[in-house]
Design a protein around this nucleic acid. Sequence first.
DNA 1: AGTGACGATGTGACCGTGCACATACGAGGA
DNA 2: TCCTCGTATGTGCACGGTCACATCGTCACT
Lengths: 337, 337
Amino acid sequence: MSTASERARMPSIRDVARLAGVSHQTVSRVLNDHPSIRPETKAKVLDAIAVLDYRPNLAARALVTSKSNMLGILAATVGEFGPTSSIVGIEDAAREEGYSVSTLNLSATTPEAIGSALRQLAREQVDGIVVLAPQVRAFHVLRGMAVEIPFVSLQTASGSDGVSLSADQVAGARTATEHLIGLGHSDIIHIAGPQDWIEAESRMRGYLDALREADLPTFPPIRGDWTADFGYFAGQELARRRDFTAVFVANDQMAIGLMHGFRDAGIRVPEDVSVVGFDDIPVAAHVAPTLSTVHQDFPELGRRAVRLLLAQIRGEQVPQFGPLQTTLRTRESSAPR
Amino acid sequence: MSTASERARMPSIRDVARLAGVSHQTVSRVLNDHPSIRPETKAKVLDAIAVLDYRPNLAARALVTSKSNMLGILAATVGEFGPTSSIVGIEDAAREEGYSVSTLNLSATTPEAIGSALRQLAREQVDGIVVLAPQVRAFHVLRGMAVEIPFVSLQTASGSDGVSLSADQVAGARTATEHLIGLGHSDIIHIAGPQDWIEAESRMRGYLDALREADLPTFPPIRGDWTADFGYFAGQELARRRDFTAVFVANDQMAIGLMHGFRDAGIRVPEDVSVVGFDDIPVAAHVAPTLSTVHQDFPELGRRAVRLLLAQIRGEQVPQFGPLQTTLRTRESSAPR
DNA sequence: AGTGACGATGTGACCGTGCACATACGAGGA
DNA sequence: TCCTCGTATGTGCACGGTCACATCGTCACT
């Protein structure tokens, strides 16, 4: 029966040292896998650690090393499917490497908001930051502010230059558009994402490239907001025009909404109009008609981001990833003209 | 031009003190809003802080106070829509209260995995933990292990007993089933979630309650895994039986897959069979036919979790939330018999 | 035998805070 | 006038690790 009154202080490195009959520094060496430790001594220390159920205090360690063993995620994505999936990949990969992850969700993408978020993460002394801020504006802000903390930004640029990373959006969009062209469509319109999203721009570029190369007419893209609701209204709007036979939509949510809008307006997919989306969200294969779309591996993107970031942090050779491939998933919503 | 060689050490509380001509303790008092500080002194200190761009070192603070100002999220959800949405709510609310959030995603829900995750968060000295582990097993594990850290668990129990919190799943499922009954259906089957998910049980109970009360026959529920793919196979399977006219599905993904399966098997929704889902995911309003479902406010659930947790941490009166209401969204997929 | 290098371990300082206690000063009551 | 009390501020230590340096023994080489 122990004295309940005495505050249960966690055992420290010195408690372990006392029990093992060594100095606290020796314990520290065992914890950090220092080479010059006699196996016998190491065993004694490990025993003591086990007996006391000792766990190193991360705050103390962070204080003295000014390294927190923690990565930060700065996310400026409302809850889009893609980025959210990447976050899971990031967390898993980080955890595997012994890092914790602190997430910071941003609603606004103003320079001030991004700045203060970045400073917040810096205060937490994260060792590195993965930025998921697919907006053009955010990207510039980041470039502009000289952060001393290593960071990798996800899905912001089309190429990978050591600090940014993404699937090959342009190629994916191009493939999707070429698929429609191959089906005999020559009047293909595009519903794009918000103007300041880099991915939206890339997907639009891929669309334009494919059309130009095939000498087909391009249409001014319609700017959406990624939501299914917008897609619906766009569908109703487009129903008045009949100068197209196919639509390439910048993401699946809008594509699904679009098909709904068409349906309500009496336009059949794919008989009257073919539709291709982007992202391959889980329900894309099951909506009616099933949606042709471009698949990309978001979790893998997250894992790569972590590898890139850790290489930077550790000063190792930064791995050069080629752009992540996308895959076209052909389904019912796209059919020959 | 400054000497680049000298390591840029962050300004500490003592640097501020020196510049302001006071003791470090006075600076500390200013930082912590201590009452006995002359306004004049306070101003001097604040000036110095601004000049040096000083920011308190959280690790040092955590070390001495053994409080980290950080909340942990322990999530054992593969990436389901609901929990993911709640996480956003948690983060926002936590951030507003000045807390950081460290997320830990679990793939397995074995007692060992949960235990080690909990210990990991404890090592990070989080002040409290929100657990999103909707599996029955996880719930028991948590109950079993005496964690000294305050925690709130989300979506595990149907009631709210101060440490757990959820929308009223039973009532929601009951409303959905009653809706089908009201449409004249008497043979209603249920596709449930995985056996060890508490929500799956609650939704099933709501379904059973409604049927029993209306004196209608119940069917042994079909156990799914939440995925649209499972729904699809279930649809094909069910197409062979024709002993029902309505299906209440435990989540929207499976419901969408189910409708796909029916479609491929030549069963029309809602003419031949009515379908109602649960969760109201964003595309539910746009699939064909649009899906009747039960809406719940996941982000609000997350916010409440944080309020509950903070009250516990601060030793305040723990707020008693009634169960969060759900709303039935009636759409095309459910029609009169 | 002397010397240098290396392995194994110990000693003390230090990281940046907050806390307990000490101190200085002015106001108010006996 | 002296003592008490409250306000405003300073002093030193503790938190739990790591780092730089010191110590001591052993072994190889000259």
